[in-house]
Design a binder for these strands. Structure first.
Lengths: 248, 248
DNA sequence: CGCAGAATTGATACATCTCAAGCTGGGTGG
DNA sequence: CCACCCAGCTTGAGATGTATCAATTCTGCG
């Protein structure tokens, strides 16, 4: 059961950390008031499952803080992550009432939920929610396709380098923009989760992390804390086009 | 250059084969008239490139007949298909004016194009275009994620079986619904294109096709004409959940 | 302090890739 | 009408990257 801890941050949309990026980004005045009326918060602890694939879901939601994953599992247990949900990302699908993927909190997670029915009505009557959702969905589709290239054609080393590069760049974009500065961050994923995201085994992930460390592209402090020692080399190892215009 | 052959079928949206499935599906009366004013047709021959990644694209379009592919290529030539465009599928992204993928006609292709600017204006002023596009984009995202599982976790045999199953089911859904009847169809893809779609080499594709033939799951007449001899065995080989609720 | 989960490392197996040699069938020109 | 040609495909043999199985070694925490 979700731990409800809704008072740890403001209920006021005006102060919300994802106000300008989430599905509500384009709403103002009346529209925002209507959203505010149907919203509520839910919190989950790291490791908790938010929903299982196939379950009924009577709400849609935005990630406010924390990281969640979308994954699919085959009958014999093979698992593939199909999405990484970061703050402002949207969960759920208007017009469908069961979920197609397992949603899991990998860190402590807070979501801003909207009851499905009223949300769907809003999509029909006010334009800005649907417009923003379309934009976000198109971005997700681009990310998914970028990931298809990684899964289908990249080597293990390239996969790891790509993942580190994406996480590093996301952190950098939140922090001050300083391109060729050394980048430091904490991995929000275990080795196994990385493996499930990259279509590898955890052993291969571990080996490739060690290899990048040995090659002085990164350094590790503990298992999670990563420093990018040579960002250009990382980009090179990721095999992306020079001017790294990646999404996610 | 595109071969313009716009008279081989009707200009009247009322008679259009994709009228009820494409981005225009929800439009009636005025809205349809407005779309009709900004639309025009383009034809491409099998093998022709519709657009290159990075190019400017001043229109968006629906596939009317034929099959096209979306693909990405790495600097060293590794290629991954990231989408298969069938009749009624949408090409292009409102709000962005360059293309992120190579678009190629794999069969003769006819597209119904809308000039981008007026189309974007319509999205803002009339709700039904945007609503339908959101719905279609969410479906594409589901397909892309389904494909991520295939690329990341399935074996070569499972990949081939999955692809054949998807094509067979699509053809079956267009034709009369007869579940356990023998299914026959023509592959719209060469072995190399299949390989690029599945994240394999063309040799592996060829070998697995031969293996499925030897196992009497399929039979081949020429290189392209496929008969599914045992659909249950194909499903089994694809490794999907029993009640195959796949998308695409 | 010691335990448990997470991660690393090693040895080996195996699926797929790579390189290379034929095959096949539909189209073309002599 | 036939022979040739060539892109697309098949098949084979060997190389290689990643998975698998199996110990250790870390690391945080009660």
């Amino acid at each position: 059961m979700p731990t409800l801890d809704t008072l740890s941050f403001s209920h006021d949309c005006g102060d919300c950390p994802i106000r300008h990026r989430a599905v509500c980004a384009r709403c103002e005045g009346d529209e925002l008031d209507r959203l505010e009326q149907i919203k509520y918060y839910r919190s989950y602890q790291a490791g908790q499952t938010v929903i299982w694939s196939g379950d009924r879901m009577d709400f849609v939601a935005s990630v406010v803080t924390g990281v969640a994953t979308l994954s699919q599992t085959m009958e014999d247990g093979r698992r593939q992550m199909v999405g990484l949900l970061l703050p402002s990302d949207f969960v759920g699908r208007p017009g469908r009432d069961t979920v197609a993927y397992d949603v899991t909190a990998t860190t402590d997670l807070v979501m801003c939920c909207f009851r499905k029915k009223p949300f769907e009505e809003m999509m029909l009557t006010t334009p800005h929610v649907g417009q923003r959702l379309l934009e976000m969905t198109l971005d997700e589709l681009d990310s998914a396709r970028e990931w298809m290239l990684l899964l289908g054609r990249k080597t293990a080393r390239e996969k790891i380098a790509s993942l580190l590069s994406i996480i590093a760049r996301r952190d950098a974009s939140l922090a001050v923009k300083q391109p060729s500065k050394r980048l430091v961050f904490d991995l929000p994923l275990t080795r196994e989760e990385m493996a499930d995201y990259l279509g590898l085994t955890l052993e291969t992930v571990s080996r490739q992390m060690s290899a990048l460390r040995k090659d002085k592209v990164i350094s590790l402090d503990g298992k999670r804390h990563v420093t990018i020692e040579d960002f250009d080399a990382l980009q090179e190892a990721a095999g992306d086009d020079s001017d790294g215009g990646m999404l996610v």
